[in-house]
Design a protein around this nucleic acid. Structure first.
Lengths: 301, 301
DNA sequence: CTCTGTTATTTGTCCTAGACAAAATTGACG
DNA sequence: CGTCAATTTTGTCTAGGACAAATAACAGAG
């Protein structure tokens, strides 16, 4: 395996660090220091790209870049998350066996994972399956990813397999007709969709009419879609990886774009620490969302 | 509905035009000319953002920005694609009725669309359904989108519903075991996945063992995944919207990263006009890909 | 008139270097 | 020990210059 070099655009794509950041780090911290081609443009060796990806991962965990770059290469030991974890209350009985499931992913054994999940789904029923298996499992995958136990492609495998399970489950449900019309999507740059699928499962079970539009809808288009589908509720999902800074502005902006009569709801680990916004419902858990759905119904009977 | 203003990052997100491009257009062509906030930063009114999106759409169609920006606002009439279209040979009988399907999407009638597609699937069988319905339908959606008959959110609805159908169909197939192990994914910034699902359907029908890893895998991670899963073939998909300039470099780069014994295949409308690359298979149609699979088998028996 | 190779224009991306504000940390003080 | 202010850190923005790849325009040959 050769080690070709990346230009700055390729590094941005592969690490998620913007060109501006890459340049300003070089200026400030003296890392990364790429080679230059004949044309004076940066050529990052694969080694530096790997290190950058590691740094990015630790940053998403709450570390600060200045420190990380200074640290030699025993960063690997710093895997302990700085961000104070929830102190792991007593694990509910139904949450047991999750690590075993992730072990299957770690072994790249798609078939066994799928089978084990099918069994849990049959045993628990869809609602409990989503709330007590898929949701905590997704959280655990986040942890595994944060402390380096999962490679990117293992997280992708998990996402893809779980995707299939949830869609399969949803497809067996009768289309809801009695509840509100709920438009489910996410904003540009937000590609995570498992949260949307979970909500769709639960809401459809409750008889709501879900219209899933996939991820990454431009704001103005969300407004048009809400009008076209006469949505009662527009529900967005923000993952923990989404830049939190942008969320409040984004939601306020969208609130202005949407028809007044449409409710705007946002959920996912990305909104956990967002301050309340006028006219926008923020939900930290699936239970909160279900409660809000029930509340909506009492107000629109 | 108010018209709040976008900062340059929001415009990049919503239009897909990079900050560099937005600034250089302003300098060169005098459009867009955003307002400035107290801090001297650009504030784009929603009107300009809409126009930029329109320009971007026409550019993807083959028009050049300089001309587009000069044109007042009867651009709308320029909807005629500049890119020479294939002159629409005699439409095969099986391709009939596709416009009716898209009409259902245009009416936002998800249920009827899904039902109609289910019928076609049952009638044609999976292979013909993919080749004669889904593939041409996806092409037509591209056309509709290009000449403005589809809004963004309508394309999203189509993608989501078709996604469901294909996954449902795939889930009923027995997992292939006799063929090569095929790893299916796409590179960062490439989010289109219907092509991957189509290939997965056909390959799984042929008995190949498909490992789908979703979209947007960093290059180095694709290499790791190929090793971990001992993939015989790594298959990538490039949509027509993916920046063509980047594709050859990307593929050459990836070729170096992959284990020598793994084949690298790329397909999708993005590779239609890409020059041949050493050690990389390029496929313009699903038939080509199936032929390559058969060929692979004769060489590895 | 069509094809092919050469020159000119268009266009995206990269470069440097400076500035500033939001977020996070530190320190002072009640 | 908690709260508010000062300070550092960090990302993003700005400006204009430069260059090369892609595309269009043109010239000359068959």
């Amino acid at each position: 395996m050769n080690t070709p070099s990346f230009n700055i655009a390729a590094v941005e794509r592969d690490t998620g660090l913007s060109k501006d950041v890459l340049r300003v780090w070089e200026r400030r911290y003296g890392f990364p220091v790429p080679d230059r081609d004949n044309n004076g443009e940066r050529c990052y060796p694969a080694e530096q790209v790997d290190r950058l990806r590691l740094i990015k991962r630790l940053m998403d965990l709450g570390h600060r870049p200045g420190k990380l770059i200074a640290t030699p290469l025993d960063e690997l030991s710093e895997l302990a998350p700085r961000r104070s974890k929830a102190p792991a209350l007593a694990v509910p009985a139904s949450h047991e066996g999750l690590d075993e499931l992730l072990t299957l992913i770690k072994q790249h054994d798609a078939a066994s994972y799928q089978q084990a999940m099918q069994q849990r789904l049959a045993r628990q029923g869809l609602q409990a399956f989503v709330q007590d298996t898929v949701a905590p499992l997704t959280g655990k995958v986040g942890e595994y990813w944060e402390d380096g136990r999962f490679e990117v492609f293992e997280e992708h495998l998990f996402t893809e397999l779980t995707n299939r399970l949830l869609r399969q489950a949803i497809s067996t449900l009768p289309g809801g007709t009695r509840g509100p019309r709920v438009l489910l999507t996410s904003v540009p740059d937000e590609v995570h969709f498992l949260g949307l699928l979970m909500v769709e499962s639960l809401f459809t079970l409750e008889g709501a009419e879900c219209i899933a539009l996939g991820t990454q809808m431009p704001l103005l288009e969300i407004g048009r879609a809400a009008e076209a589908h006469q949505a009662d509720i527009v529900a967005l999902s923000f993952s923990g990886a989404f830049p939190q800074r942008q969320i409040p502005g984004l939601l306020q902006h969208l609130r202005l774009v949407l028809p007044k009569e449409a409710a705007l709801w946002a959920g996912g680990s990305g909104v956990a620490r967002i301050a309340k916004i006028d006219g926008v419902g923020l939900f930290n858990t699936l239970d909160d969302a279900l409660a809000a759905l029930a509340m909506w119904r009492t107000q629109h009977d």
